[in-house]
């Protein structure tokens, strides 16, 4: 009795210590970038072009990050969620399932720079597109699809068997059961998976270096709606340096007098965006579930 109480106290203390450590590290990171960037930060930094002022702005690269995120998720979400549904509900024990699982694990363990090289070979060289947002998005799809499939599958498998049985016993078909009984319960888990994936897309640099390109963008003209014009910011067939790639580039090239300020401020923007994502996902997950379950 006494021993188990001691064990309980020790376990509690250790868990507290770990939690405090993790929070401290997080606060330290955010705090560092805040302190470093506040003196030079201004709202115009977010929206102006790199060539506008001495420090320059991140408007175009921030736009590219958002653009690439949306483009990638446009492919990843439907394929990932449908793939997860397939793996959880339809896949049997056969060869095909084993092959899919094997490739899922394989791709997850490959460094993203290697996926980037693969993307370069396929979407840049073979297709002859050059460095494009589309090539970047497809490369990101390659290594985010297995992740989202896995997370969706887990969310769907976590739905109690009772839920399915109840729906089937009421004379629903398998698809109706998935759509109306299983998915509403799995939605929060799936949305969490989507946001995790989105965070990876937003923060990814290595896989994009050789696919979406790393030239410093010039001024974007948003009134140019021609999707095939490589100068249009709406076109998927253009060079699209993202915020993460830009941070990497400005740090490694070390050009200009304000390199560190630019890198720090960009990093802060990145962190804040990721934070917004995570908080937004919780709200979205809850709202979706309420809507779908009719409450």
């Amino acid at each position: 009795m006494k021993r188990s109480l001691t064990a309980d106290r020790i376990a509690t203390a250790v868990l507290w210590a770990v939690a405090v450590f993790v929070i401290t590290v997080l606060v330290a990171i955010i705090g560092y970038f805040l302190v470093e960037s506040i003196p030079t930060f201004s709202v115009s930094f977010l929206f102006s072009d790199p060539s506008d002022t001495a420090i320059g702005g991140i408007g175009p690269v921030l736009w590219n990050s958002v653009y690439l995120l949306v483009l990638t998720m446009l492919f990843t979400v439907p394929l990932g969620v449908l793939g997860g549904i397939y793996m959880a509900e339809y896949a049997g024990e056969g060869r095909l399932t084993e092959a899919i699982r094997f490739s899922q694990e394989l791709i997850s363990s490959v460094p993203s720079i290697v996926v980037g090289l693969f993307g370069f070979a396929l979407f840049v060289a073979t297709t002859g597109w050059g460095f494009t947002a589309l090539g970047g998005a497809l490369t990101l799809l390659v290594f985010n699809l297995p992740l989202l499939m896995r997370l969706s599958e887990q969310a769907i498998r976590a739905v109690p068997a009772d839920e399915r049985a109840a729906s089937l016993a009421l004379g629903s078909t398998k698809w109706q059961t998935i759509r109306h009984a299983v998915l509403p319960v799995a939605i929060p888990g799936i949305v969490t998976g989507i946001v995790l994936t989105a965070g990876r897309v937003f923060g990814e640099a290595a896989a994009l270096l050789f696919t979406a390109g790393l030239s410093t963008p010039v001024h974007y003209d948003f009134s140019n709606l021609n999707l095939l014009d490589p100068r249009s910011p709406w076109s998927p067939f253009r060079n699209a340096t993202t915020l993460s790639v830009y941070i990497w580039k400005s740090n490694s090239e070390g050009l200009g007098d304000f390199v560190h300020q630019v890198a720090n401020m960009s990093s802060m923007v990145l962190i804040v965006m990721v934070l917004i994502f995570n908080l937004g996902s919780r709200w979205l997950g809850g709202a979706l579930q309420r809507r779908i379950s009719g409450l």
Partner: peptide, 26 residues
């Protein structure tokens, strides 16, 4: 043929949606 299970297993939906579930699917 309807089945009432040994353990109650309502859907995590409103009372209305629980009852309307079958007819809606049909």
């Amino acid at each position: 043929v309807g089945l009432v299970f040994q353990r109650p297993n309502p859907f995590p939906m409103s009372i209305y949606e629980n009852v309307a579930y079958g007819p809606r699917r049909h």
